[in-house]
Amino acid sequence: MAYEPQYYPGATSVAENRRKHMSGKVEKLRDISDDDLTLILGHRAPGSDYPSTHPPLTEMGEPECSIRELVEPTPGAKAGDRVRYVQFVDSMYNAPSTPYFRSYAAAINFRGVDPGTLSGRQVVEARERDMEELAKFQIETEMTCPALAGLRGATVHGHSLRLPEDGVMFDMLDRVRKEGDSIIMHKDQVGRPIDKKVNLGKAMSADEAAKRTTIYRADNIAFRDDAEVLEWVHRVFKQRTIYGFKPEATEL
């Protein structure tokens, strides 16, 4: 029987959402065009070619190497793209994802990516077209709510603040605004104005965000409500503590 990864323990909706994010089996909620994505990322002009740092691998004549024969290069590496980044910020008020689960999602489901996990933000570096594929996936699916999460390349402040009255996570550079029911991005991820407004879709309602979140919160689903998760977290902490102190006493 083929092995099926279990990803994460737990019986609550938060645990289920964590499994979804890690496995990449997330629901697609919105569409964003390639040009719009390029605009908000701000690394190159929409429609322009990908700038490269080296010729395509086929033209370079690679040295003989068993690993290179074994591992298929990603499309970005094949074409010699530059390494570029995308950075997400997720509000602590029931945003669908968190930096850790964005990193798990990137590292498990995408190749050639370098996720960086910080307390309030999560950055992924990769070859430009590989990075865009990942960014598009995370923005279009239930991993992102345009109001509770955002693309922020610089000045990420806001994830731990109370939400403003309109429910759109505070951004001191005002990259995202609510216009009618839609969330509009009118600056790129570092705060430079862009030529047109990019519609990121509708914000999740408070109930929907609470249902789709991967964050345990005392006012939604508390961490201590999930007995199986608690058991496994206790087990991991106990095992690693004992292993560091007295490896022969570790129970397997």
Binding site: G153, A154, T155, V190, G191, R192
Partner: peptide
Amino acid sequence: QTVPYGPA
């Protein structure tokens, strides 16, 4: 009033 740091 202005972007404090980063490329912008």
